[in-house]
């Protein structure tokens, strides 16, 4: 039914909405049918390793408000799709393993590490990168606060810090608890401890943490003031 050695036809049904344009030239390495749980490990290079062509796939998504359709190797992470295919290099590759947060973007309203997700998994998704928040001529309030409080040094983790910072204030507002939230049943507040804990997935080796916190505090304060003004019955 499914012939991976001649996938052009069979994969058409397999890859939703995708035009498969390449085929495997040899059987996958684990030709013995690996279970879908984590039971069977792979040796680094046991014996001859088959050579396989990339599998191409098309994905359509919205990035910073603009519709994009990309034809890409299935292996392409969202991060590399942004940086290499769309040339949106504001999102940084710091570790490529979910250990630093430099690649943080906001997908469908949530911050995620774009290095640990495949672009192909985001069909129809909406991505906001640092470029989508503001421009040098028109900075987002968080970007402006980072400049004012010197919330960066080398600048490499900065886009991820800013995307995270924007999302963190939303997460607090949405009542999502954190490790330092004292009472699980009360709404968390934008305290220093809350912001520090929630930002901890964004490593800054230059050590701008104290300044980033000040930038966030300023923006959180502005947001609170705006909300209060908005609620003013007058």
């Amino acid at each position: 039914m499914r012939n991976h050695g001649n996938a052009d036809v069979s994969r058409r049904g397999l890859l939703l909405g995708a035009a498969a344009s390449a085929a495997l030239t040899a059987t996958p390495r684990h030709g013995q049918a690996m279970p879908a749980d984590a039971d069977v490990p792979s040796a680094p290079h046991p014996g001859p390793v088959p050579i396989m062509n990339p599998v191409m796939n098309r994905v359509s998504l919205t990035v910073n408000g603009a519709a994009q359709t990309l034809e890409m190797d299935t292996r392409t992470t969202l991060l590399d799709a942004l940086r290499e295919h769309l040339r949106l290099t504001g999102t940084k590759k710091g570790c490529d393993h979910g250990q630093c947060g430099a690649c943080t973007v906001i997908v469908d309203g949530r911050r995620i590490n774009s290095c640990l997700t495949l672009a192909v998994m985001h069909e129809g998704g909406s991505v906001t990168t640092v470029e989508g928040l503001g421009t040098p001529a028109k900075l987002h309030p968080m970007q402006a606060a980072f400049v004012k409080h010197d919330g960066y040094q080398c600048g490499y983790c900065t886009p991820g810090q800013i995307c995270s910072a924007v999302a963190v204030l939303d997460e607090i507002k949405a009542g999502i608890p954190s490790h330092v939230t004292a009472s699980l049943t009360d709404a968390p507040q934008a305290t220093n401890a809350e912001m520090r804990e929630r930002m901890s997935g964004n490593v800054c080796r230059c050590g701008a943490y104290s300044n980033i916190l000040e930038a966030m505090t300023e923006v959180a304060g502005q947001k609170m003031a705006d909300q209060q003004n908005g609620r003013d019955p007058a």
Binding site: G90, T135, P136, L139
Partner: peptide, 12 residues
């Protein structure tokens, strides 16, 4: 403020 700040904070 750093003169390179607007570039660094916007990913440019």
């Amino acid at each position: 403020d750093r003169i390179d700040g607007p570039l660094k904070t916007t990913g440019t």
